Simulated assay, not measured.
Amino acid sequence: MTQYTIYRDADLDGYGAGASQISCSLPGPGYSSSNTDCDDTDDAVYPGATEDCFDGIDNNCDDIFDMNDPSCTYCGDGTVQRPNSSGVNEVCDYPVSSCSADCTAINWTLLSLKSYWGFNSGNANDSWGPTYDNGILEGDASIVTGGRNSAYALSLDGLGDDMALPLQYVTDLLAPQFTLNLWVRPSIALDRPTFGFKDSSQWNYANPFSSYDSGLNFANGSNYQRLQPGLTESSSSSWTMYTIVDDGTYYRFYLNGTEVIDHTFEDGYPDLIEYNPSHANTRQFVFGQSGFSNLLAQWYNGRYDEIRLFNRGLTAQEIRMLYQSY
C-alpha cells in the first residue's frame, strides 16, 4: 500500500505547514504534500506568490520582504506594486506600458520620512516635521535661487556659516536607525559636504556623527577615533546625492543611488554600531561645517538642497528610487 506524507493546509492555498501526517491517499482539500507555507492563515502568502513590496509581509516565503525582495524594483527599473492615490497597490510595468503619476510619486510616509528641508518657500523651514522647529541660518548662510529640484537652495560661503538644527533633531541622529539623504553642489571643484555636532573639541566622544575633508566620523562609545575615509568628492558642475544609512548593524554609504563599497571601517574595528550620545545630546547638529572647534573645523563652500532625515535605515532599492525620482 502506498503511503503519502501530507501537511495541513488551513488557508487552502495549496501549501501546507506544521507537523506531517501519513495518509493512504493523495492529499485532498485542506491538505498538501508541501510544508513550505510560511503563513498558513493567509491564502495570499505562499511560495511563489507575488511580493507586495509595501505591506511588511514576506508574501512569497523567501525570507525577504517588501523592497528588500529582489522582485521589487521601481518604475523605470522593472515592475513594482506601489500604493496609488487611493491607497490601492498599482502595478507599474515600465517600459511595457507608461508609468502613471501614481506609480512615479513617492510615498514619503511609507519611507518613514522624519524631516525635510527643501527650501521651496525661500526659507529653512522643516516642511515635513510639524512638531519640530525650523533650521537656523548662521553667519552668511542664505537661501538662494537655483536649487536641485526647486527654485531655492541653501547657500554657504565656506567662511563660517551653516544651518543649525534645534536640539530635537539630535535624538533622531543618535537613534538605533536613521538615513540622512541630501544633495550638494560645491562652489569649488572636488569638495565634500561637511556636517557634525557643533563646538566639539574631541573626535567620537563629543562629535559621534560628522563629515569633514579627511574622514567620516562615527561614535564607538569611547574616546578614540573610529573613522571612515571622507565622503566621495563631488564636482562643482553638477548636483550629487549623498546617502548615509544606519540600519542598526552597519553604516552604509551611497553616491548618486549606488553604494560606495570601498568605504569600509578601518582594519581592526568591527562594523557593529555603538553610541555614546551623552556627549552629543546637548549640541546642535549643523550642515556646512564639521562641528569641531579645533583644526578640524572645516567649512563647506557650496549649496545644499533636498535634505531628508528618515527614522529607519532605507534599503538599497529605496535609495535607488530616491535618486531616480529626480
Rank of each mutant, 00 (worst) to 15 (best):
S155C: 03
N301S: 09
V144Y: 09
G118C: 02
D191K: 07
G16C: 11
D43I: 00
D102F: 12
S155Y: 10
S235M: 10
G56P: 00
D11S: 00
A17K: 04
L110F: 03
L159Y: 14
Y300Q: 10
I22P: 02
L167G: 03
L309F: 15
D62Q: 03
N223K: 08
Q202W: 11
S234W: 12
A124Y: 05
S32L: 11
G221S: 15
R308N: 01
I188P: 10
L137G: 08
L255K: 13
Q202K: 08
V96K: 05
L309N: 03
T131E: 14
A44H: 04
Y326W: 12
D126R: 04
L182H: 08
P95M: 04
D133I: 01
F218V: 09
N35G: 00
T194R: 12
L296K: 13
Q324T: 01
S115G: 06
L295F: 08
Q298I: 00
P83W: 14
W299I: 15
Y254L: 11
L167T: 04
N134M: 12
S121Y: 14
M321W: 07
T73G: 03
Y251T: 02
N68I: 03
P186N: 13
Q225V: 12
I261E: 06
E274H: 08
S293W: 12
W203H: 05
D37N: 10
D267L: 12
G160A: 04
S23E: 15
T131A: 09
L113Q: 11
N107Q: 07
Q284C: 05
I273V: 13
Q284A: 08
C24E: 14
S112Q: 13
A49Q: 15
G160T: 00
Q21I: 09
G160Y: 08
D140G: 06
H263V: 04
D213C: 02
Y74V: 00
G135E: 06
D62C: 06
F265H: 13
S97Q: 11
L165A: 04
D9W: 05
D40A: 01
S115Q: 15
R82E: 07
N125T: 01
S86I: 00
G78M: 14
W117G: 00
V88E: 05
G129K: 03
N59T: 02
